[in-house]
Amino acid sequence: MASIQEIQDEIVDEFSMFEDWMQRYEYMIDLGKSLPLIDETFKTDDYIIKGCQSKVWVHASMEDGKVTFTADSDAIITKGIIAILIRAFSNQSPQAIIDADTAFIDEIGLKEHLSPTRANGLVSMIKQIKLYAVAYQTQLN
């Protein structure tokens, strides 16, 4: 299994292949379409990310010491954003998620090409993923 850093490097490489942001947005939309579907039972207010303009649901579970995330959004760009985060952080140990750097977001230029409300939502998504990891790490200790 690849480390978070290795996956983030892959994502940066993939985004660097595109010449302009329209192509990158199209790629994000495609990533969102390939996102494993969240179980409908988790599309409730308990799993919604606060601070996002659109609705984003994230569910986490832990098996064999690895945290697995599923997610969905009602907006196609946002769904692509959460797909990138799920790809980077899913199937990793809680401690690896907690310790992970998120500089790859800046490296692909994502934050600077999002509206302020979407950029805030991105920060909220990362925060929620890390909070799940903290909760699971606490259970391990």
Rank of each mutant, 00 (worst) to 15 (best):
H59P: 00
A60F: 02
A60I: 00
M62V: 00
M62I: 08
E63K: 09
G65P: 03
K66S: 05
K66Y: 06
V67L: 03
F69N: 02
A71F: 00
A71D: 04
A71Q: 04
S73K: 08
S73I: 02
I76P: 05
T78V: 15
I81L: 15
I81Q: 11
I81V: 15
I82D: 03
A83S: 11
A83L: 04
I84R: 08
L85S: 07
L85Y: 11
F89H: 15
N91W: 01
P94S: 05
P94L: 07
Q95D: 14
Q95I: 15
Q95T: 15
A96M: 12
I97R: 13
D99F: 15
D101N: 15
D101E: 12
T102W: 08
A103M: 09
A103F: 10
F104K: 10
F104R: 10
I105P: 09
D106L: 10
E107Q: 15
I108E: 12
G109L: 13
L110P: 02
K111Y: 08
E112P: 08
H113S: 09
H113D: 13
L114H: 03
L114P: 05
P116F: 06
P116M: 06
T117E: 10
R118G: 03
R118I: 06
R118P: 03
A119T: 09
G121V: 12
V123I: 14
S124F: 05
K127Y: 09
K127L: 09
Q128E: 10
Q128N: 07
I129D: 05
K130R: 12
K130C: 04
A135M: 05
Q137S: 04
Q137L: 03
T138Y: 08
T138D: 12
T138A: 12
Q139C: 00
Q139V: 06
